[in-house]
Design a protein around this nucleic acid. Structure first.
Lengths: 154, 154
DNA sequence: TTGACGCCCATGAAATCCCATGTTAACCCA
DNA sequence: TGGGTTAACATGGGATTTCATGGGCGTCAA
């Protein structure tokens, strides 16, 4: 299972390219598609990203719903239609599509933020503000987490 | 596993030809039929499309319904009877049959919309309106998708 | 003959690959 | 432990290929 940890800030060059942090690339090894899948977050000014495996899982989950149902339709067009497949080039970089960069307010630098099985891409200053908020929030609410037992065979 | 992701808008030339997005073509590789299967959606002004493999799956699912039932008959005649096999030419294009183009209101451009295992073909402006709706719908209902565990051996 | 269709080629723009460089971090050896 | 060497990585720019798109030509059938 791919694990994305820590935060890295890299530059965006005039072609719109950014290096994907080396540790993230390592986590992506052995996928059927050498790259990431990215889409606009519907919760804020950030880009959500994950490996293609996760999309395959999502697709299977969609198949479990009734084909041609309204629910299936809404989810499919929200998740898959808006996603972008970003291949990683020989130098470990991706090119950010303008739509995504604008949504996140990214211009000359991008912050890669690990979230476990997925990660996010932020404009660095937007992220620092967000992080302060999130920490405060967690402290106030005394957020806790219960560990889920490991599935068999992993 | 074939996965159709993202949205691409391509032009329709005066012969009725459209380029199938390169990534979609890649997802279609290794099929028994080099092309797509397309039929009019009965839910809206769009064309449903998928690989030939998917039709075989649908056929199996259809067999699981009661033979001669109203539902089985409805699906069989809306999907299979209406389906067109559209071969992909040497330049990666298909020719849209007038019946389908008219149903979707497509004239000079077509939007290829990924939905995981399948995709849709829309008139670009019709689709943008639909997408706004779908997003709102998904957000309101807080629609989430329970991830289905990965099958063994994958 | 005319139109539908398949096949081939030309073109411009955009995406991708390739190489060069500086900088930082890891490593090794005395 | 400290200094020097090496390797990994991020980054910039140029070269090359892919891709979408337009058009032409021959074939076949109505």
């Amino acid at each position: 299972m791919a694990l994305f940890i820590s935060t890295f800030v890299n530059k965006v060059d005039r072609k719109g390219r950014v290096s994907v942090p080396a540790t993230f690339r390592a986590a992506l090894k052995g996928q059927t598609f050498n790259g990431i899948v990215a889409f606009r977050s519907y919760r804020g000014a950030t880009i959500e990203a994950c490996a293609i495996d996760r999309m395959e899982e999502l697709s299977r989950s969609l198949d479990a719903l009734d084909q041609f149902s309204a629910e299936q339709d809404a989810l499919a067009s929200t998740i898959f239609a808006d996603a972008h497949q970003l291949p990683i080039d020989g130098d470990g970089r991706i090119t950010l599509p303008p739509v995504l960069a604008e949504h996140a307010g990214i211009s000359d630098a991008a912050a890669f933020v690990g979230r476990g099985a997925t990660f996010q891409i932020w404009a660095p200053d937007t992220f620092s503000r967000h992080q302060v908020e999130a920490r405060k929030n967690a402290a106030e609410r005394g957020a806790t987490l219960r560990l889920v037992p490991r599935p068999k065979g992993e």
